[in-house]
Design a protein around this nucleic acid. Structure first.
Ligand SMILES: [Mn+2]
Ligand SMILES: [Mn+2]
Ligand SMILES: [Zn+2]
Ligand SMILES: [Zn+2]
Lengths: 146, 146
DNA sequence: TTTTAAAAGAGAATGATTCTCATTAAAGAA
DNA sequence: TTCTTTAATGAGAATCATTCTCTTTTAAAA
């Protein structure tokens, strides 16, 4: 998920969006921050190098990035919105202890699910995608507090 | 998921909670409302018969019900909290068109998942439960607007 | 360099949720 | 049944993340 400055510039430009320093730093922040950062964490990261960015701009840019499929929103059991720089469809491990969210990808699992739902059609419903929310606990936690 | 007045009273009492008219009507509302109602819908329903219930009380009671495992919170892609009267572990169909959420239960699927993760342990993580978020579209929608 | 539409900045507004504190009522004891 | 205690409720203020409004700035194309 690392991306160079030019990489980031291209991703934004490819969508036909104006390449602004704000958009660049927000996308850069999401790629650099731990995993699935909150808006608060994104703002904190950006203000190190770009102290005057407006809060409203961060929200607006995030919306733009989401609707252009450059980032995705991730919801937790709790009420905090998080953002995900990995846009390929994937699953998540949710730690009930420390709130850490980790990506989970497994092609075999996706194949099993695909087969299951081909054989078990749901009346009146067309599936577009399936995401697993795998709740549990890591043996070693990231931030024991909060 | 239907429950008589006495049923509801017992559910609350069994948890060692005081049986108040407010708690009764909120639990009754969740059982009676469509599917996975929002706080707004719950308040609207209750005020028909109990016009003076305070908004803060509804939030407080909902928290109490959730922490006593009488109802569950359900998150949507969007930013609206919903409540679920079905407390057994189950999956959800999310309609991307009309926001309707429908329960999905299938013992065979759960068995397949159980077996898969027994054979594919995740390093450093102990699974407690797995929920599928099945996104797609119903052929017939509930509320085409909103 | 100039033009122009889109984006950003500043700060007010919104709205769902939480908080505070005085009043009320459920549940158990007498 | 009445009393006592403690938790729950009501009313409205406070909070806080997010959105909105409006002015200024700027990226991109001419
Ligand atoms: Mn992810
Ligand atoms: Mn449900
Ligand atoms: Zn953890
Ligand atoms: Zn629908």
């Amino acid at each position: 998920m690392n991306a160079s400055i030019n990489n980031i510039r291209n991703k934004i430009a490819e969508k036909g969006l104006k390449v602004t320093p704000q958009r660049m730093s927000i996308l850069e922040a999401i790629y650099n921050l731990e995993n699935h950062p909150t808006v608060e964490q994104i703002i904190e990261f950006i203000r190190k190098k770009h102290p005057n960015i407006a809060t409203g701009t961060v929200y607006k840019v995030l919306d733009t990035l989401v609707s252009n499929d450059l980032v995705k929103k991730v919801k937790t059991e709790k009420d905090i919105m998080r953002y995900d720089g990995l846009i390929e469809n994937h699953h998540h491990l949710y730690c009930v202890v420390c709130d850490h969210i980790e990506d989970y990808m497994n092609a075999e699992l996706d194949e099993i699910l695909k087969r299951f739902f081909e054989e078990n059609k749901i009346d009146n419903f067309i599936i577009e995608d399936i995401k697993l929310q795998i709740n549990g606990r890591f043996i070693i936690h990231k931030n024991v507090n909060r």
